[in-house]
Simulated scan of single mutants.
Amino acid sequence: MPAQDELRSTLDQLHTHLQKQTYNQTTPLLSRAKLALLHLNALIPTPDTPRAHLLLARETLELGALLAIRQRAHDTFTRYFQQLQPFYALPESVLPAAGGHASKITGLYLLQLLSQSDYLSFHMLLETLESEGGGVRMGDKEVQYPVRLEQALMEGSYDRVWGETKGSGVPDDEFRMFSEVLIPSIRHEIASCSERAYASVPMANAKNLFFLDSEGAVAQFAKERGWSIQDGRIYFPNQEELTAGDKDIMSTSGTVIENTLGYARELETIV
C-alpha cells in the first residue's frame, strides 16, 4: 500500500479511537503515522512539500496533541504543539487554515501554561499571535477562553474563573479537563489569602468559598491545611504568628477574596 494511502487509513483509525475514547491503542498508530510522514518527507514542512502531504502531517500532529490532552500527558502535548508551529506559520496560500485546529490547539496550550502559572510564556505566546497570527485568530473562542481566565485570575476574581470553567463558555471537552488543575490551584490561593485576611470563616460559607462539594470535603481540606473547626467555624492559624511581611499582605488579601466571600454567601442563600 502506498505510504499516503496507509497514512490515511491510520488517521481514520485514530479519529475513531478519539471519538470512542479508546486511547490505549493509539500510541502504535501514531508511531505508524509519523513513520509514514517520514517516508513522505513531510514530518517537517519544506518549500517542496506538496500541499496534500502538509495537510496529512498537520492532521497527524493535531490528533497526537488532542490524544495527549485526553490522556493528560501534558509533556507530550507540549511536544506536539512545538512540532505544529512550523505548519501553523505557513501562509494561507500554502496551507489553508480550513480543516485544521490551530486555534483550538493554541488555546489548549495557553490554558496549559495558565494551569502551570507560567504567565511569562502565556503573554509571550499571545504577543506572538498578535504580531504573526498564522492560522490562529485572536478573536476565536478557543483563544479568548484562556485570555478571559487569565484576566480573572490577575484580578483575583476567582468566582469568575469558577464560572468560566463550569459554564457554557467552555469551548470543548478538552478545555474542561484543565479545571482539574486550575480549580485546586485557585482553592489553595483563596485559602492562603483567607489565612492572611481573617481569623475564621463560617463553615456554612466555606463549601462555596473553596469550591468544594460537601462539608466533609471542607473538613478534609481544613485538615490538610492545618486548620481547626469549632462551633461551626473554621479557624485559621494565629495571625499573631505571621511575619511582618505577611501582615503587609493582609489588607490586599482581604480585598482579593472579598468578592469570592460575597459570591459564596449568595450561593448559600440560593442553595
Rank of each mutant, 00 (worst) to 15 (best):
S251M: 14
L67T: 04
L110E: 07
I183N: 01
K166H: 09
V136M: 05
D5E: 10
E215N: 08
P47I: 07
T128N: 03
Y145S: 08
T255A: 14
L90A: 03
G134Y: 12
A191M: 05
I234C: 11
A42W: 03
H17S: 06
Y80I: 02
I69Q: 06
I190H: 05
H39R: 09
E180I: 04
Q151D: 01
L7F: 15
T27K: 07
K207D: 12
S228G: 08
Q21T: 08
I186G: 04
T255M: 15
R137K: 10
H101D: 00
L242H: 04
N205V: 06
K247I: 12
G133S: 13
L95E: 01
T165N: 02
A57L: 06
L38V: 02
L56K: 05
C193W: 08
A219T: 10
S115T: 06
L267K: 14
M154G: 01
L113S: 13
G262Q: 13
G64E: 06
F122P: 13
L212F: 13
E6I: 09
P171W: 07
T252P: 09
L37V: 02
R187T: 08
P91R: 09
E189T: 09
G245S: 12
G139T: 08
Y119P: 03
A191H: 01
E164H: 04
S179P: 01
L209Y: 05
Q112P: 03
L110T: 04
D248Y: 15
A52M: 02
L35I: 09
R58C: 11
E215I: 11
D5T: 10
V94A: 06
M177A: 03
A206P: 09
F211A: 15
V256L: 13
T260D: 13
M177Y: 00
L37Q: 04
T269P: 07
F211P: 15
N259F: 07
I183C: 02
G169P: 03
P47M: 03
G216C: 12
T260M: 10
A36C: 06
I190G: 06
V181S: 01
K141F: 06
L84S: 00
S192T: 05
E142H: 15
A33Y: 03
W162Y: 11
S131Y: 05
G163W: 01
D159F: 03
L67E: 12
Y263G: 13
V181L: 02
N205K: 14
I249T: 14
K104F: 04
F81Q: 02
D213N: 11
E150S: 05
A219M: 07
Q25L: 14
F87I: 06
T252F: 13
D118I: 00
K207H: 09
I190A: 06
E268S: 15
M203W: 07
Y198E: 08
K141Q: 06
A264L: 13
K141S: 07
S192Q: 04
A217W: 09
P146W: 02
Q220E: 03
S251W: 11
D173T: 04
N238V: 12
L126F: 02
E6Y: 01
T46D: 10
S103C: 01
A73K: 15
E268A: 11
Q25I: 15
L18K: 12
C193I: 04
L111W: 08
G226R: 14
E189Q: 06
L14M: 08
